[in-house]
Design a protein around this nucleic acid. Sequence first.
DNA 1: ATGAAAGCGCTAACAC
DNA 2: GTGTTAGCGCTTTCAT
Lengths: 340, 340
Amino acid sequence: MAATMHDVSRLAGVSVKTVSNVVNDYPYVREETRRRVLDAIATLGYTPNPTARSLRSGRSNVIALMIPDLRNAYFAELADSVMRVAAGHGLSVLIEQFGADRERELEVLRRPRSQLVDGVLYSVLALDQDDVDIVAGITVPVVLLGERIFNGPRDHVTMRNGEGARAATEHLLGLGRRRVVALGAHPGEEIGSAALRLAGYREALAAAGVPADDELVVPVGSWHRRDGADAMRGLLARGVDFDGVVAFNDVLALGALRVLQEAGLRVPEDVAVIGFDDIDETQYSMPALSTIDPGREEIARTAVELLVRRIEGGPAPFTPEEVFVPYRLIPRESTRITAG
Amino acid sequence: MAATMHDVSRLAGVSVKTVSNVVNDYPYVREETRRRVLDAIATLGYTPNPTARSLRSGRSNVIALMIPDLRNAYFAELADSVMRVAAGHGLSVLIEQFGADRERELEVLRRPRSQLVDGVLYSVLALDQDDVDIVAGITVPVVLLGERIFNGPRDHVTMRNGEGARAATEHLLGLGRRRVVALGAHPGEEIGSAALRLAGYREALAAAGVPADDELVVPVGSWHRRDGADAMRGLLARGVDFDGVVAFNDVLALGALRVLQEAGLRVPEDVAVIGFDDIDETQYSMPALSTIDPGREEIARTAVELLVRRIEGGPAPFTPEEVFVPYRLIPRESTRITAG
DNA sequence: ATGAAAGCGCTAACAC
DNA sequence: GTGTTAGCGCTTTCAT
């Protein structure tokens, strides 16, 4: 089995404390002693047991990232960013998915796994009161990514969803579009991203004096590519008249894009389309997709840093921080202004 | 702070052993005792400390998944599948990325983090002798996903990469294409997926009596969308004549697809394109992308199960298993047979 | 059926 | 500078 600190101390002829000192770069160790210890470590192939270290120190240097679904490119890219930033802080990342499988979600949270991690980054699209209770039961620091879900304040890092959706909608209105679809509404929801984006969309219409039409607000089950495609198929089947689409995320937009083109509609000439997230694919789709860049990198960086502060600050009283990361509208071919 | 087993035992008026018995569903506990303990657990909100449990039992119920890059949809989808299967075995998944950042890769592996996990699923595209040494240094069970990288045998789960590439190439040849590009070669490599896929491509040409042309073998730095786009741009700029593309993964194909269409070439009429991986996006691209489905779900399931067996089987001598998962060719629009 | 006690491998007082 | 020792919270013989 793996060598322990005792094995090393015995071989080096020193105490475990000295080995620990060397391993942890404690400065006051005689050079010669250090050498002897390092030699012993090398010959034994010793590597500290992180579990024991963790039990003793109360820190595991692992954080959890809880996301709905890695198959959605936005979350995969977010996870990538989070992991890179975390690595810079010496942290590993345990990813837990919160898919449609509610049982799994509850199981994940009820399990004591959350004590194995030093902190949690929790990214939710939409959730109900149950989730709130569960989150409240987590004893380690939690930073929310995306929309805040509690009524009370809570650390969270997000973009201004409402403003972003408003900007996207105004972008289409600025092109002269007047029948703009909002794709991706979550009817029951009041406080998540979908609700905020829908509100932003409505604000833009109102500000421009364009009449709102409920027929143009398209609900979807979830924010996957398939949902975007299905919703667009339904819209076309119902014969709804529209000349623009604000999709609440990129994969919804891309699913819709495909269906629009199958139906022989030209994008952006007949229908201009804009998404949300700025996933890698949007630069390469046909046509390239205009989108709102939510500042994913900065969200990840800020959130990890905030979490690290909380972890290191201990359970002392604190004021929750609400950080809004700047977003950018990225116009591409799917809303390119044309002569038409 | 969180309640411990001792707190529970005190409140319930029993010993810690009894609490442990109840927590671990040890059958021989008097019903009344069990009740008292469960009550105490409930009032204290006790939840076992996984770190202590792990130190004692030597098991953490966490496995690591080491992948090149979560931003590649294939790996995100693979991670998703792995996490679902792992959840079924009560395992959480720690994802470590092996991007282009070699420093990070080495750091990840050198760190003792690998002792925090019970096993490792290691998915590599291509790697050199250094990696072999590092992997050899991991003390927990390792199952390789994708191509085997050692000369000696080693547990691994993969598809038959050569056969898959050959089938893809034959599919294009069957359409009458004779100038078929192999997109995604990794020149130096001898043993990874790229090498095997290239060999399969060459076999197909040879079997069909179609002359091989080195100009049609296109190397790329990595297998990202951008690389596919850049490589295709280069190919067009060099004026190379071709009527088909076998891309070694889907995102390469999708990047190329974009550039082909930008250049005014029709897919599949002028150039037929087929990829590898069957990522979700391929069903929705314009045109929908033909691809090789490597059996991702089954790879994930098989690999996790194999790893679990190794973990439970202990370090006893064993015969490494090499599991080949069946692949399927999925024809879509990008190779749809047309009148032309 | 339950309790006492050892110890997993490490860190951190506290001595010297 | 370095050694001794007491736990971190749990599981697990070994008793009873």
